[in-house]
Design a binder for these strands. Structure first.
Lengths: 221, 221
DNA sequence: CGTATTCTCAAACAATCGTTTGATTCAAAC
DNA sequence: GTTTGAATCAAACGATTGTTTGAGAATACG
């Protein structure tokens, strides 16, 4: 029975709400998922959201904070392992940027859903949410941009940001499995994402290395 | 054969609704923009949406159909000009894919807003909308994939789709101006998008040409 | 024990949602 | 001028939204 004391439940009310919100925001979006859907999925009372988080907007922020803190930490840790080293390649740095997101999407705690939430956040124009993400991602982005600048000395600072921006957009897109390509039935979700990261890293590395010749018409060949 | 009443107005009610819906869907999303917002912005009566389109979902579909028909036509026309030719480069084909979207985003009829709507559609998991887009994009995508296959004979069919998929995601992301990079005040919107397309084409071409040899770490397990 | 605090719950709140209705206005057909 | 059918309008529909309320149950602490 569930008549046990509240504190002894397998997961706290706050955590159940966060998990349910994450999954529903990924599926229906922030405006599309109602608090009644969230609380029903979490098997908690409707009023629990406003009691524990204050409002729906604050709940959304908490959904992001819970994952982004760890994602940023892991990315910077992975970057620190390869940054400045002699034999570090572009692929290594890109791996440090992409792999933590891949790992997050594989984690069983609902991280896969969060990656889709993250992709939605990029598509949203919500000013509050944009600023929140910028404050979290901006710091990481600057450190990676500095490392890319060392590996690609011929590229200007602005050019680095341009290309890294494209990589981030493509990464988010690919990680969220938004592509038109449907994975075959005999390929597991894990292998699918491994392949996605593998393709993306090769793709992104080549793109980051591309020459800066302004005119692309009849460039080589 | 009755021509429409109220024909003396500068734009018809249907067109005004479509324009307002496009702009508001881009800003607030499909669930986030209400019909009252749309009809107020279009300066038409609330009931006009259901009268002319039947429902909100049908209105959404019509917003897409109006732009996608022309975008697909232009992409295929641009592809036909370079496909099969002797000196055709990868950049030329990518240009045929990206340039029509760029032109659309520059058109004064609200095309810029539609590109943002398109990016939202990719982030949505709406099954109906996904199928609608797949039917429109699938046809174009197959033709481009065939051309890329000729230009990159070393890549398998599945690999082509993988990379083209990443290009599409990155394109949508960049075209919608979702990037963190903010354009400077002295750069016009037009120049900003020109630069974006230029960067993206170079980036994408290098990515498409990337070797298939896995340069880093086959996964464990 | 009793008291204080934290949390849950059903119910209701005002606001907004997409949609429908019925009357009215308008341009063209007769 | 009358009729006709399409288009517009204000108003209301029932359903759903995020949020608040107040009473009650569960826990913590003295």
């Amino acid at each position: 029975m569930t008549s046990a004391p509240y504190a002894s439940r397998e997961r706290s009310t706050k955590e159940r709400i966060l998990g349910a919100a994450e999954a529903l925001f990924a599926t229906h979006g922030f405006a599309g998922a109602s608090l009644r859907q969230v609380t029903a999925a979490a098997r908690v009372n409707l009023a629990a959201v406003n009691y524990h988080f204050g409002s729906k907007d604050k709940l959304i922020e908490e959904v992001f904070r819970r994952r982004l803190d760890e994602l940023n930490t892991r990315r910077l840790a992975a970057l620190a392992k390869v940054a400045g080293e002699a034999g570090t390649t572009l692929e290594d740095v890109l791996d440090a940027y992409i792999r933590p997101a891949l790992d997050l999407s594989r984690s069983d705690g609902g991280g896969a859903a969060f990656v889709r939430v993250l992709a939605r956040a990029y598509a949203e124009h919500n000013e509050t949410l944009r600023r929140f993400l910028s404050e979290n991602y901006g710091h990481v982005l600057r450190q990676f941009a500095a490392e890319f600048g060392q590996l690609l000395p011929k590229l200007g600072k602005e050019e680095i940001y341009w290309r890294l921006d494209i990589v981030t957009g493509a990464l988010t897109y690919a990680m969220a499995d938004f592509g038109i390509i449907q994975r075959k039935g005999d390929v597991t979700e894990r292998d699918h994402r491994e392949a996605a990261a593998d393709h993306l890293i090769r793709f992104a590395a080549a793109g980051m290395r591309a020459a800066t010749t302004s005119s692309h018409a009849t460039a080589s060949h």
